[in-house]
């Protein structure tokens, strides 16, 4: 049994690296030429960003990259704890490592370093027990698109040991609440809009009544009413079913109203962690009460200039 004082989630010093195809030599050559000629600060930023990608240095314990590959550290020594019945938000720009982190927590990726425990159970060594306690909603509503919501949901529920009859009743209740048309329940998923598919994805996770729910941008693509309904569902899961929720989102308002605490991730590292109010206190007041968006912008602002923008950037043209 799970002890009552065990935290829902303990993430300790997690590192996850990937071998990805490295930049072709001709591109590196043209870029290094531009860097040599460049006279403004933007050129230096390119070099700094490469600190996130390591071509094979082993001085800091990073393994050497395979030939033609480079090592990208997606999650870089991340640690935090989530208490039971807490709604914990993870914010960060695209590519900051949020989804990789969620995949590690949901047993889909093995960390290179560090440990993750879910209610005291190690996600690697006791993965089967962990799987029974968790579920995940991701931004890509992945389903057998020819099958109907009913067929998909019954399949998903049976994998968690829920009987077809029970799942059928619950699924219809949840989908009705989320505003799915009744006749859509037996139509192929491919005929549904992206938002509708996302609602079915949310129902799939809620059906199994996980005690740790991992929500990876669950409300992306939903209309405002459905967003509110999902948020209310999330609160209900916590309040009625004692579930703990970890959520990633790009909706700062949603994070603000929903989360008890928030971690901001940038380049795979946690750059801030606290309650929404604590985080807002840290932000500069530019003539108004800081919002979570201000905090996000200040902490991850350099991501506003993307790598691709820099490689296409021609300083002479802009300056002239």
């Amino acid at each position: 049994m799970i002890g009552t004082d065990t935290p829902a989630l303990v993430v300790e010093n997690i590192v996850k690296r990937f071998n990805v195809a490295s930049e072709p030599w001709w591109r590196k050559l043209t870029r290094s030429k531009n860097e040599t000629n460049g006279t403004n600060g933007l050129s230096r930023n390119v070099g700094q960003e490469n600190g996130h990608n390591q071509n094979g240095g082993t001085n800091n314990g990073t393994p050497r990259a395979k030939r033609g590959k480079q090592i990208v550290t997606a999650v870089d020594h991340v640690s935090f704890e989530v208490e039971r019945r807490e709604i914990f938000g993870v914010l960060g720009p695209n590519g900051s490592g949020k989804s990789t982190l969620i995949r590690v927590l949901s047993t889909l990726l093995l960390p290179d370093e560090g440990t993750v425990t879910v209610f005291g159970l190690d996600v690697d060594k006791q993965s089967m027990q962990v799987k029974r306690l968790i579920n995940r909603v991701s931004v890509d509503a992945a389903f057998f698109k020819k099958l109907s919501p009913k067929e998909n949901l019954l399949y998903g529920a049976r994998l968690y040991g829920v009987s077809g009859a029970e799942a059928n009743i619950k699924a219809q209740e949840i989908l009705k609440r989320l505003g799915l048309r009744e006749n859509s329940y037996t139509e192929p998923m491919e005929e549904m809009s992206r938002g509708m598919q996302q609602k079915v994805a949310i129902a799939r996770a809620f059906l199994t009544q996980p005690i740790l729910l991992l929500l990876d941008e669950p409300t992306t693509g939903l209309d405002p009413r459905s967003k509110l309904e999902v948020q209310s569902f999330v609160r209900e899961l916590r309040d009625v079913h004692d579930a703990t929720i970890l959520i990633t989102t790009h909706d700062m308002y949603e994070a603000d109203v929903l989360c008890d605490r928030i971690a901001i991730l940038d380049d795979g590292k946690i750059v801030a962690l606290g309650t929404p109010a604590e985080l807002k206190q840290r932000a500069n007041r530019n003539g108004h009460e800081p919002t979570l968006e201000d905090v996000f912008m200040q902490l991850t602002g350099k991501e506003l200039v993307e790598k691709e923008d820099l490689s296409d950037f021609e300083p002479d043209k802009v300056l002239s």
């Binding site: 889909l108 029974r132 995940r136 998903g156 799939r204």
Partner: peptide
């Protein structure tokens, strides 16, 4: 093909 592999592998199924 369907993109469901992560959901099947995440489920507590031996």
């Amino acid at each position: 093909w369907e993109g469901t592999i992560e959901y099947t592998f995440m489920a507590p199924v031996r």
